[in-house]
Design a protein around this nucleic acid. Structure first.
Length: 197
DNA sequence: AAGAAGATATGCT
DNA sequence: GCATATCTTCTTA
């Protein structure tokens, strides 16, 4: 599996994740999420992310400290934080920074590229609506609570270098939260049809 | 022990 | 645009 993934792209360096979440969020755009799913590989290029801080960020799950639910958000950068919400949805984050700081980047949308048929069957819908939202993307990639806390370097979920030339990245305020920090922490590819609405 | 809210998606009006 | 599904986790008593 490792060899095949390297044909698509190299794993991002560990040091990539040991930075501020807004920096990681912006630089994740254009890279590729890969999910090993029942022997096949599915995934695509990241086109939309949001940064969540720990302290000074009221809406972050990490704001009130470590709990059973959010404990993997406090791991070292390069791990995965998956949480369950609204009684039916999973969302996936990439943890960043040093161990214990509780910072992460929410993956909000990807461009479906690998294993599109598999993703369609997981989502039961068509390609334009496959992965343009944080919970949709998790459903399409078969991501659930069992993947919470895993490493991006050894498990069934990887992030590898993608082709970044020719894309325009813009920022805005985050979606779906009462904005508490005067900072545009959402990053997305300009005029990409797979960005969430 | 109980209640409220939630980093959402979908379907209907 | 708004209601609703649906259930885990945290907060408060």
């Amino acid at each position: 599996m490792t060899e095949d993934i390297n044909k698509i792209g190299k794993d991002l360096e560990k040091s990539f994740y040991l930075r501020r979440p807004d920096v990681v969020a912006r630089n994740l755009i254009g890279n590729i999420v890969l999910r090993e799913y029942h022997g096949s590989r599915i995934g695509g290029t990241i086109v939309e992310t949001e940064a969540y801080f720990g302290e000074n960020d009221e809406v972050s799950h990490a704001y009130r400290g470590i709990t059973e639910r959010n404990k993997s958000m406090f791991k070292e950068g390069g791990h995965v934080y998956v949480y369950f919400t609204y009684g039916m949805h999973y969302c996936m984050n990439v943890v960043c920074g040093k161990m214990g700081v509780g910072r992460a980047v929410l993956l909000r949308a990807i461009r479906p590229e690998f294993g599109i048929e598999t993703m369609k069957s997981l989502r039961k819908c068509e390609a334009t609506n496959l992965t343009n939202g944080p919970a949709k993307l998790c459903q399409a990639l078969g991501i659930d609570k069992t993947l919470d806390g895993i490493s991006l370097f050894s498990g069934p979920v990887r992030i590898v270098e993608g082709q970044k030339s020719g894309i325009k990245i813009a920022s805005s305020f985050r979606i779906g939260v009462k904005e508490s920090i005067p900072r545009k922490a959402r990053y997305y590819v300009v005029s990409d049809e797979f960005v969430s609405k």
